[in-house]
């Protein structure tokens, strides 16, 4: 999984049918020190993350597992909202 920050939302009414009902969020990938890591991506949101929240997301075909359909063209899904990060330096 990767850490990220929700920076926006996407609306798309015309989409593959098994994706209906899921919110699509823009996520800026970050590292554990909350520094930006590369380009923002779009991830499906099954946990109800709000803009600005720090989250973590799963990629590849595992991203379909949180959805309650067996097949969906989704390669990134938010699966957790971070409460705190504790790094032992």
């Amino acid at each position: 999984m990767y850490l990220g920050k929700v920076i926006g939302t996407i609306w798309a009414t015309r989409k593959y049918e098994t994706l209906t009902g899921y919110k699509m969020q823009f996520v800026q990938p970050i590292n554990a020190e909350l520094e930006k890591l590369g380009e923002p991506i779009v991830a499906l949101d099954t946990v109800g993350a709000g803009p600005g929240e720090i989250i973590f997301y799963v990629t590849a075909s595992e991203a379909v597992i949180p959805l309650d359909v067996d097949m969906a063209p989704c390669d990134a899904s938010i699966v957790g909202i971070v409460d705190s990060i504790n790094i032992q330096s």
Partner: peptide, 22 residues
């Protein structure tokens, strides 16, 4: 291609700082 975008809303503007606010 699995979706056609109607609207895109970037609510959290980062003035391209390196770290993100929490």
């Amino acid at each position: 291609i699995m979706a056609i975008v109607d609207k895109l809303d970037i609510s959290v503007k980062e003035k391209n700082k390196e770290t993100v606010e929490v």
